[in-house]
Amino acid sequence: MENLVNIFIKSVFIDNMIFAYFLGMCSYLAVSKTVKTSTGLGLAVIFVLGFTVPVSYLIENYLLKEGALVWLSESFADVDLSFLSFIIFIALIASMVQLVEMVIEKFSPALYSSLGIFLPLIAVNCAILGGALFMQERAYNNIGEATAFALGSGVGWFLAIVGIAAIREKIRYSNIPDPLKGLGITFIITGLMGIAFMGFMGIKL
């Protein structure tokens, strides 16, 4: 249990998706104009990450890895399908996003209409595919750890986008040099927030 909490905290603060790996920057920059919409997108990302990463973990370990197919028959012991992981993960993410969209539409129309266009956009959010690929690279021991990592990364992404949205709402009234307005200053603020987040780096868990 302690181990799971550690992985969660680590992926929220130390290995933050945005500040340490720059994943999901496109939607982060495009959607962070108001706090309200960014909260919706952040929640959707937590949701989709929490679904896709554990499922990709199962696929990785029972279908793709070298020797993963042994449960079917002993003769598959040396089959290595890991080169297929990109295409399978992206197909999984696209279909998961579609599924999540349909489920939300059915059971919570209010949430569905407030998320609107952001749900389908998550399919091409690099944070999701990045989550699946980091899970593969770091070789977590069991599905619990993979889920903790996924939820932690989602929460980290959520914190980052809500934070920058709040700052952007404030700086609308600041006197910024013209060429730096909009995109430029957002980049620089994200960089400064990243430096602040690096304060967590020394923490050993």
């Binding site: 720059f22 060429p179 960089g191 400064l192």
Partner: peptide, 17 residues
């Protein structure tokens, strides 16, 4: 460190604009 990449890109955007 990673955050400096953002600041460098921000500076490039500034110069370009």
């Amino acid at each position: 460190l990673p955050p400096m990449a953002l600041i460098v890109v921000g500076a490039i955007i500034w110069v370009q604009r």
